[in-house]
Simulated assay, not measured.
Amino acid sequence: MRLKVGDKIPNFKAKDANGNDFDSSAIVGVKPLVVYFYPKDNTPGCTAEACSFRDQYEDFKDLGAEVIGISSDSVTSHQQFAQHYRLPFILLSDNDKKIRKLFGVPSSLLGLLPGRVTYVVDKNGIIKMVFDSMMAAKHISKALEMVREISSLN
């Protein structure tokens, strides 16, 4: 089942890029979230997407939102990816693909690649936007636009 606008975000746990335990319940209900699923560290589209989120990260923070990137890469891969590109936001390792399944993120390219989907969640944990596109560059502006919209309502 795919999560859609209006659904409550499910609770999820994973290891972050530093090997620490992350529990979504610590921030869901506290601040807006941008949760983006991407196929793989260090690939051209995913690197461009991560660097764009990095470059706009202060804009998200200024609006009170947190950005979380999720892929099935290992903690070590995420750590190297985050260090190399100086990524300031949370990267989670979903190596068993449980979180991807929980959100219902579809595969793309005939099921060969994990999908690229961004969710914007308000501070109450309700999904306000689902953007499903392999066009990596479009995710950041769409997410920022929605975070601005929900922040102006508070």
Rank of each mutant, 00 (worst) to 15 (best):
C46D: 15
I140T: 14
S133C: 02
K40T: 08
K61G: 02
F22G: 11
V5K: 15
L33F: 05
N42H: 12
L144P: 00
F81P: 07
K138I: 03
C51I: 07
N18I: 06
V75Q: 04
L144C: 01
D96Y: 07
T47S: 13
I27S: 07
S152A: 15
K31S: 12
K138Q: 13
S25E: 14
F37S: 04
D41R: 03
P10A: 04
P106V: 11
A143K: 01
G19V: 08
P106S: 13
S52G: 02
G69L: 07
S151P: 00
E149V: 09
A48H: 10
S72Y: 14
D7M: 02
S77V: 05
K123N: 10
I126K: 12
F12C: 04
R2W: 11
V147I: 12
M146G: 05
S25Q: 13
G19M: 09
V147G: 01
T43K: 13
F89M: 15
H84Q: 15
D23M: 07
M135Y: 12
D21W: 14
V130N: 06
I99P: 11
Q80E: 14
A26I: 11
K8P: 10
F81I: 01
K8L: 14
T47K: 08
P10E: 01
K15G: 08
S71V: 08
A143W: 00
N42T: 07
E149A: 13
F103I: 03
K15H: 09
D132N: 13
D41M: 05
K31D: 08
I127W: 02
F103E: 07
G125N: 08
L63I: 01
P44D: 14
D96G: 09
R54V: 00
C46K: 11
F103W: 11
F22A: 10
D7V: 01
N124S: 15
P32S: 04
F131S: 03
S152N: 14
L63P: 01
F22T: 12
H84G: 10
A50R: 00
Y57L: 06
F103N: 06
M146R: 05
E66I: 04
S93E: 10
S93D: 09
G125Y: 06
N95R: 12
S25W: 03
S77D: 08
D122R: 02
A14W: 06
V105K: 11
N11D: 14
G45H: 13
S52R: 00
D16E: 10
D7E: 07
H139I: 04
S77Q: 05
G125R: 08
G6C: 13
V28H: 04
S93G: 09
G69D: 09
F37M: 03
Y36K: 05
P88F: 07
R100G: 11
P10V: 03
S71D: 10
G29E: 06
G29K: 05
K98I: 11
K123L: 05
A82M: 09
G6R: 12
C51S: 01
A137M: 11
G69C: 10
K61F: 05
G104K: 09
D16V: 10
M134F: 09
M1Y: 09
V147H: 01
F131Q: 03
N20I: 07
D23Y: 08
M146N: 05
E58C: 04
K15D: 11
V120D: 00
L92R: 07
G19Q: 09
M134V: 13
I90Q: 08
K31V: 10
D23V: 06
